[in-house]
Design a protein around this nucleic acid. Structure first.
Lengths: 147, 147
DNA sequence: ACTTTACCTTAACTTAGGTTAAGGTTTTAA
DNA sequence: TTAAAACCTTAACCTAAGTTAAGGTAAAGT
């Protein structure tokens, strides 16, 4: 195995994830590999960054489905450049801005609304389901926390 | 049924949730009911606020488990007062402050780190798993979004 | 009185993001 | 060369937060 190809165990170790996670990501279409003569997975070093980005994105609450979608904007025929990656993260940043603003708004209403009983009023953003973020129309957000 | 008792269907309608959700919450110990002669659930009107609070808390990413825990601080022998509810939400507010700050930090690192490759460095909060929020030691955060 | 609506319980199913186990093959290291 | 370590696939399992279905009882409306 030259420097340019990595086994699944090696990728797992360098990224701090389990081998089964890599199988899972591949099955979901988030990463790619080819097989050697013995049917074992081989990876380009490029995969390391992909996995780091997946982990970073998950940390800010982006789902694998959204990540997969974003990865569609990466070039197929060449290794992504710094600019390719930055474009991707810039889009996510804007989404994050919206989510942060939304959370702040909810936080600001929290004490007041829970105490006062306006929860049943249609003006309270804590209660109203038709509020904000329709702009992003994404699924549930999972913010993975560290322990 | 006097004004002071509600059937499960009535509670469901007034809170905008399904009957099955109320069964589920009861099973999880988040709400309580008693039974009438025909084995049907009956609720105190107080339950309406509990459910509103559950929904509000979920919206800011608090899990049912955490909500259940927080509800332990409510009085058992009397209907919770405004002060009881406000104490509860004040605690959540502080947690939210921390989460927002953490998200902001991640957002700020997003473009830079994903582009530059520092994702594999231990200093980058996007990569480093031992970062922040250890203060709250909670499970994954789910931010339910509206469509 | 009768029919419809509401309710009951139990069990299985759903999505996301994986993890674990079982049983068999390939690589690597001594 | 042989044993251990790494790898393969398939299938089942896990948590959270519910939802759906099936089969049966209670309550309410006409």
């Amino acid at each position: 195995m030259t420097e340019a190809t990595l086994s699944v165990g090696r990728v797992a170790k360098r990224c701090g994830v389990k081998v089964s996670t890599l199988h899972f990501y591949e099955q979901k279409g988030l990463i790619k590999s080819w097989r050697n003569d013995g049917n074992q997975r081989r990876y380009k070093p490029e995969v390391l960054r992909r996995i780091s980005v997946i982990k970073a994105a998950q940390k800010v609450g982006i789902s694998l489905e959204e990540i997969k979608l974003a990865f569609l904007s990466l070039p197929d025929n060449r290794t992504p450049t710094v600019e390719d990656w930055q474009l991707l993260s810039t889009n996510w940043q804007q989404m994050l801005d919206a989510r942060i603003a939304y959370l702040q708004k909810l936080r600001d209403y929290m004490t007041g609304c829970i105490g006062c009983g306006c929860l049943s009023m249609s003006k309270c953003p804590l209660y109203n389901p038709d509020d904000v973020l329709a702009t992003q129309g994404t699924g549930p957000v999972i913010l993975e926390q560290t322990e």
